[in-house]
């Protein structure tokens, strides 16, 4: 089991729960939420090292959640998930200072690689 602290945020429940199960099978403990506000509440009690964050979500959108994370938890690394055909959201996120971005659908090995880099595992 990795000693990592990761939160996955995506409003597509089936997507995020299945992804979490796959990460846990690989020994990566993750917490999951489908809601941006809930993600911020989870961070209050136990700030993670990495947040994997979907851009397009109803309610509090990914970029708004990103701004709040950067304001309150500047040490937390954010990996954006974008489902758009273009990389515009990802580039926008990079300009805003995210650690990196990935396009959906994901390659799980790419995601794990990014998380490893973000927690400083090289």
């Amino acid at each position: 089991m990795q000693d990592w602290n990761v939160i996955l945020v995506d409003d597509e429940e089936e997507f995020v729960s299945t992804l979490a199960e796959r990460l846990r099978l690989r020994g990566i403990p993750v917490r999951v939420t489908t809601d941006g506000e809930e993600a911020l509440r989870m961070m209050e009690t136990d700030p993670p090292q990495v947040v994997v964050l979907d851009v397009l979500m109803p309610g509090l959108g990914g970029l708004e959640v990103l701004k709040r994370i950067q304001a309150d938890y500047p040490e937390v690394k954010v990996i954006l998930l974008t489902g758009q055909g273009s990389t515009w959201d990802g580039i926008q996120g990079m300009r805003m200072g995210v650690f990196d971005y990935l396009m959906k659908p994901l390659n799980i090995d790419d995601l794990i690689g990014k998380i490893r880099e973000a927690v400083g595992g090289g």
């Binding site: 597509e12 089936e14 997507f15 299945t18 992804l19 199960e21 796959r22 099978l25 397009l56 489902g83 758009q84 055909g85 959906k104 659908p105 994901l106 799980i108």
Partner: peptide, 28 residues
């Protein structure tokens, strides 16, 4: 059309993760 392609990609992402999980479980 662009909005729908976005939704289709979300659905494909779920199918991909589900098939990936099936593959993980099979490997176990």
């Amino acid at each position: 059309t662009a909005g729908f392609t976005h939704e289709i990609k979300n659905i494909l992402a779920i199918i991909k993760e589900s098939s990936g999980l099936m593959e993980d479980l099979l490997s176990l």
